[in-house]
Design a protein around this nucleic acid. Structure first.
Length: 286
DNA sequence: ACACGCGCCTGATCGC
DNA sequence: TGCGATCAGGCGCGTG
């Protein structure tokens, strides 16, 4: 489940290899994943991109943005299992993942970029005229849900403001319109690091705890980025490497195991329909 | 406006 | 052993 740190690592990997490369062609094997006003005319859109150069690969929350020198944009939301894989030749056709490869970009220098998504929750929007430094307007214009501030850069004032709500704190952390980039893994890990029960009502969190939670969110995300993200089964970066953060998770997927801080058994509950892991002693309710 | 819950989709795991 | 049922989860969308 690619969250901010995983998408950041995918972007880093893609940037290193494909920036400045010329696009020879883009093949779509599964048109159903395409969205946006050009999706029904995707053949024309892709033909219009061919021959041009990739000028930027950026990230907004969990969304990837790839732009060309003729101001065309592929905006990718990876969903649960979406990934990019870089290959030097076309031997990937024998690969196990070929049946879930929905897009193939052939670039200069024999670089091939595969977009692979087993469960097909991911989507690719075909856009034109998006400014990669200010992508939100264009994204909302094509019906993508509005995004709150980046979890890595939201300031204390804004964070305090969104905590004026009656929902459980975990629900807020997963709400991309309030704070963008966290998913289930890093929401649970941040709440553990801050010593907050995931069902704690937002409005009951005091100023000291608020400051602490914001610091821990950013610290957890930064550590996860440096570790290359978290791999359970699916996530790989653009070079096929697994993330190394899994062994450093404190609560996520550790139900029944001992808390590293106090030895209490980690519990798993359901909050707004999501599996939620926490230490009942380090993260007391009420 | 706000908040919750369903359904999409497939592979892994569970239960009989 | 085999096969159907269940679960996981990001996000759009419908509903209260």
């Amino acid at each position: 489940l690619p969250e901010l740190p995983e998408v950041e690592n995918i972007a880093l990997g893609l940037r290193k290899t494909i920036l400045g490369k010329r696009i020879h062609r883009i093949d779509i094997r599964q048109p159903l994943i395409l969205k946006g006003p050009h999706s029904s005319r995707w053949r024309r859109f892709m033909a219009n991109i061919a021959g041009h150069t990739l000028t930027s690969v950026t990230r907004r929350a969990k969304r990837l943005i790839m732009t060309t020198d003729n101001r065309m944009t592929l905006l990718i939301q990876l969903g649960m299992t979406g990934k990019f894989l870089l290959r030097q030749e076309k031997s990937f056709r024998d690969h196990d993942l070929w049946q879930h490869t929905h897009m193939v970009m052939t670039l200069s220098d024999d670089v091939v970029v595969l977009y692979i998504d087993t469960r097909r929750f991911g989507r690719i929007w075909l856009l034109d005229g998006l400014n990669p430094k200010r992508p939100d307007t264009a994204m909302e214009a094509v019906g993508l849900g509005p995004l709150g501030p980046e979890a890595l850069s939201i300031n204390l004032t804004a964070f305090t403001r969104i905590l004026h709500a009656q929902r459980p704190i975990k629900a807020l952390l997963l709400d991309q319109t309030r704070i963008a980039g966290l998913g289930n893994i890093y929401a649970d890990e941040s709440l553990f690091a801050a010593g907050l029960h995931p069902e704690r009502r937002c409005a009951e969190i005091n100023d000291v705890q608020t400051r602490r939670l914001l610091q821990e969110i950013k610290a957890v995300l930064r550590r996860a980025i440096r570790a290359g993200g978290t791999t359970f089964s699916d996530f790989r970066n653009a070079y096929g490497d697994m993330g190394r953060f899994r062994s450093r998770l404190k609560v996520y997927q550790r139900e029944g195991e001992a808390c590293f801080a106090c030895g209490t058994m980690i519990e798993k509950i359901v909050v707004i329909g999501r599996g939620t892991h926490f230490c009942p002693k380090c993260q007391p309710a009420g």
